[in-house]
Amino acid sequence: MGTNAHEQETIQSPLVWHPQSAADAWQLKQNFGADAVYAAGGTLLRTQWESGLAKMPAHLIDVSRINGQEEPIREHESGMTIDAATSLAACRSDALIARKLPLLAEAVKQIAAPSVRQLATLGGNVSSLVGDSLPALLVYDAQLHLFGGAGEHWEELSDWLAATEQALLSSQPASRLLIGITIPMPEGTTDSHAVAPAQEELVSKTKRFGAYYKVGRREAFTPSVVAAAVVGSINSSGVLEHMKLAVGGGQTIPRRLKELEAAFAGSELHAATLQRIYDGVLDVYEPRGDLFASADYRKSTAANLIVTELWKSAAEAVTGGW
């Protein structure tokens, strides 16, 4: 059996290319077209090959070396950048991410298991279009550093997801290479504006909140049914400000619920508002259902998660004495 399996795997084994730059990786993809795929950790690809969802390609373009020698997770004047090839394990154990991007840290902690996260990368998670890190990155207004036909360029994650979904619908998938992910931080701060140390909240009397939730079919090591992230603040008059909502999970490409963010900006946060936000999520979020969880179940789960976080934050704001 061993020999047969070996022969089989050798025959099927793709050629593996190891480009040292984004431009080289891109060129290889241009050369081989649909016969080549980019491979980072290969964890999702392996799942697709084994399940028959995708065939092993003739060429694998290993993108783990395209980022050069810099620190893979780094802070700079305009924010924080994480190279696409950074493993989820490195993201999980990084002190800077834990401190400045706690929702991303929480999301990564809930992806797969530590052993899978040693191989799996943040770039692969984002590029999969349905990775559980996406809702967290969306509320942080993440920008993607991409390499495409026109060379290097930057794109808002939110726009990129929407455009890629459209391209998929019209069967014209774009094959852009992801180089890195940048989380902007407002000028003059060293903090993602979604994140506030507890002391700051007390001083400013504006309660800032942020949460990431993943609901699966079991407690841990499970694919998501719903993944949601919420950030915002409640001022001393109980008014909701700067709210950002992102929802995804399962095979649904996540998105920001910008229509709700705009509709409820400046609203006083009381029971009737929460009810309207709940109804709003049911209205605008369009998840894909499957045999395990219907679209309706996913909608109401998403609405519950979001409203629960807002309700908790409002309650804390009140018991916090203001």
């Binding site: 593996v16 190891h18 730059s21």
Partner: peptide
């Protein structure tokens, strides 16, 4: 494209 980028093989050590 750099030399290393062309470094692919099926028979691999």
């Amino acid at each position: 494209m750099g030399d290393k980028a062309a470094d692919a093989s099926t028979a691999y050590k």
